[in-house]
Amino acid sequence: MSWHRRFAAVALVVLAVSGTILWAHIVDRYVAASDARATFWQNVGIVEVRVPTVTSPDQEVPVGVRFYFGNPSGIALEIIQISYRFYMDNLTDSRPLPDKADDIFVAAGGYFPTTNPAVVGSRSSLDLWTNLTVRGATQPEAIERLNMTFNENYYPIIDADVVYRIHGTTIVDRVLGIFFQPSTGVPPSD
């Protein structure tokens, strides 16, 4: 075989092998990212809310909300933003939430990291606490709405959305309508 035929054969083999390695890497991440984007909304939720007893109208009340993120896909996800609206249900008001939202809204909270967002690893899960503080001195209406119990339980309602990025990519996606409304209420956390 002449030298140029040999050179051409080697060039084709090198191109094919390097292309296959690159392609396999890309397709693996593409399939894993597609799996994550298709199923992530099913694996996100609010699992716990902590509201301490309100003892005075000018108290500073820290409210904790714990989010759960499950990631069964093969690629990690970065939680780059969580935002939510915190309501305290008034059980005597039987209107649906969209109608009574303005009357029971307490405060907005979230998770807005400027650097190093939380990462949900591949095939793992993450619990993330977010906090919001209701300051009675400057938010008298909010603290009054927060201090609403029935049978010594709080009945919080939370409507949240999450923005996440596929780790190592520029792909950003959003999950809307993460809802928390326990039917049996939440006891004070202290």
């Binding site: 084709l12 191109l15 094919a16 292309g19 296959t20 690159l22 392609w23 890497h25 890309i26 397709v27 991440r29 593409y30 990212a33 596929i166 190592g168 990519t169 520029t170 792909i171």
Partner: peptide, 16 residues
């Protein structure tokens, strides 16, 4: 294979 894999990979540079 050489052409298809490189062009396929080039279309999905968003995936790192």
């Amino acid at each position: 294979i050489a052409m298809g894999t490189f062009v396929g990979a080039a279309n999905f540079t968003d995936y790192g």
